[in-house]
Design a protein around this nucleic acid. Sequence first.
DNA 1: ACATGCGGGACTTCCCGTTGCT
DNA 2: AGCAACGGGAAGTCCCGCATGT
Lengths: 227, 227, 227, 227
Amino acid sequence: MVKQERAVRTRHSLIQAAAEVFAEKGFASASLGAISKRAGVSNGALHFHFASKDALADAVEEEAAATLRRLTEAARARQGDSLQAVVDATHELVCSLGQDVVVRGGFELACGVARRADSQLRVQWQSWVEESLRRAERGGALAEGVAGVDAAHLVVAVTAGMEALGREDDSWLSRQRLTGFWELLLPRLADQRGLGALVSAGSPLSAGASASGRVGDAGLPASVAEG
Amino acid sequence: MVKQERAVRTRHSLIQAAAEVFAEKGFASASLGAISKRAGVSNGALHFHFASKDALADAVEEEAAATLRRLTEAARARQGDSLQAVVDATHELVCSLGQDVVVRGGFELACGVARRADSQLRVQWQSWVEESLRRAERGGALAEGVAGVDAAHLVVAVTAGMEALGREDDSWLSRQRLTGFWELLLPRLADQRGLGALVSAGSPLSAGASASGRVGDAGLPASVAEG
Amino acid sequence: MVKQERAVRTRHSLIQAAAEVFAEKGFASASLGAISKRAGVSNGALHFHFASKDALADAVEEEAAATLRRLTEAARARQGDSLQAVVDATHELVCSLGQDVVVRGGFELACGVARRADSQLRVQWQSWVEESLRRAERGGALAEGVAGVDAAHLVVAVTAGMEALGREDDSWLSRQRLTGFWELLLPRLADQRGLGALVSAGSPLSAGASASGRVGDAGLPASVAEG
Amino acid sequence: MVKQERAVRTRHSLIQAAAEVFAEKGFASASLGAISKRAGVSNGALHFHFASKDALADAVEEEAAATLRRLTEAARARQGDSLQAVVDATHELVCSLGQDVVVRGGFELACGVARRADSQLRVQWQSWVEESLRRAERGGALAEGVAGVDAAHLVVAVTAGMEALGREDDSWLSRQRLTGFWELLLPRLADQRGLGALVSAGSPLSAGASASGRVGDAGLPASVAEG
DNA sequence: ACATGCGGGACTTCCCGTTGCT
DNA sequence: AGCAACGGGAAGTCCCGCATGT
């Protein structure tokens, strides 16, 4: 089973390289040659692991979806059905978009018009946000007259916009930017009683969690991240 | 100069067809053959008018930018430096995104990762929103503690998100959706005194203007369109 | 008849421009667009005067052939059936190759493998040299045991080589180079009695004739040219 | 490394086919489709071995240069620094021009105006002739008053002319033609004492070697050619 | 099982020579 | 004469098998 080990490594570097190239050039303009070269393997090796370009892209999306799933589940586990869970999850997502090429590449593929419409990534994120805000609504965490679905649509639109704009300008993916958004949104969305407990910048544990176990975490200093 | 007339028509149908194909497939996956075929002209005719695929895309973006300019200037002309101008402009933009393939194709190109970063369309829209909200801020139209720039960022992110999500799901480009967003945003952004006068659904003239006519033949002079 | 005048001028500048581009790029790589642009006329004008690219090339060859004809006839008129006539003609030809783009372009076309085999220019030059040396042979101007045809072949080969090599390196078209060749050839080719009267550098009148009436004659100073 | 064997064969047949087409049509007019078809391989195979049309042409030139190198070195090895080495080499060259398509195609490319000026083939041949005649001059093999460089220029011009004229008329590449040239040149170039030993038609070994075998399969290792 | 070299077509962008219509 | 348009290729790229090592 020593062989298998190398295969796993090859497969992983292939996905990594693919995510990078997809993120840089988009699906259609990315060439398999560039991907296999960046991964340091031959063209044939690529086709041994992934039958086609689409299959490779699917794998990238799949891995990004797994990361997204971990991320949202962790947020809910910590914050329950509160609004804070959504705030935290958006922060983690935006942070990943800036640091994890697989997530970035996955969303590039999910957004692109050239691939299948029922992108797992988009619907997964949108479903989670909707579900979470519906729970918050049921739990009375939302302000009077604010429907959970409407709030969810707004949150999804904002994050989608940040992702799209962040492709060319990293400042859209900064924590400050998103914090500013929540500071404009929370007073209107949240029930007055719970408003004081909400942290626009994301709860400390969230920030800590996002920083842990991620290679090349060049995030903000802890003092700032907590502020 | 009768000949020039046909050239104008050919050029226009080329831009129209290009916008459609770009919107459907994206820049990289769009083939010039598909564009010239849809425009009903030959491959050579395409290259007579546009030296390269990029030049064609530039022309599409340019025409979309012209539409956007008309749109924003009209909104400001009607509503001055009020928040309502921004509300109206977003409605008109979203409406155009749903109806005018050139605008849709232009934003698809502007968003795409495969083309130049300094897309006129994006910066033009962002600049206008920022400028408008700064004016509103100076005019006291914004609520206490709300900075014009922050609000502008939020508006830009929301519209960008709607455009991205609207590529696959038209419901994101519906008037109701945007109206719902403004109903969540305006109470927080607008100064309390002016809040009552603001219409989340866009001012009537704006709505009427955007709904009439503009399907796909925008920009062609009437005299030519009739010929 | 004013119209005709302009037509003649247009036709001439077209041939001139065509000769330049053909000489620079070769027949196949020369584009009609480049030619019409250099001539300062429109694409349509070109096709009004010349039905096709080949017809244009034929015209260039034809004009070069006319120049070559003038040149050889002048040499024979001055020197009769002597060897000197051939020497003079080669000098004039090489000189024209360096200065007259039409001659240069014509020979480029004649040499090129992509066009018709029975190039007028080549056969015209070869025929004249053979005929001249046959006459010289009959007149006893050639050395013992030297056949006119063989000598003609040698002369044709040398001039063809100079033309080919001169395309990349002008020094092959210098008067000195050709003079050096004749100094090696004449002692073997010419009859001993007439050898003293032969001038390897070409007879003075020949040099003078070639210099007269030619624009941009950047030839050698008279003292050198005569030596 | 069994696979490599087929690659060598493919590469070789590609060069062979390219040389043929280049020789027939010239560089610009030769299409890669015609080349790959003649070689019996696909378009993709061609581009696997040669990145571009220019790279393919370079390979043809390179192989022709190798043949030329073998040829000249063999002549010098047999005849030393004598004039006979040059005579033999010219015979071998002219013979190859008539029989080896790679050599013919290589010179076609080297001569063409559409490609790089510093063609290896031309300079290689010219350098060798100049060097050889300089040696002969130093060795006293040249007649009084004959400079080695001048003689070299003449020889190079003659061979270049034969190559150019031989493209349309094979008789220029016949042994008789070249022999006739040397019979005109040697009495003037060679020192009187060594003249008797020189053979205008080329030394026997040279003639035999050049006539045997070499048709188009030069360069392919025997083991591969048999497979 | 894993990886590679080599080759196969098809497609795309772009250019070019040429031709109507005015 | 000239603008506009046409249609045919040509170069180059790409995604993908297939036979072959290791």
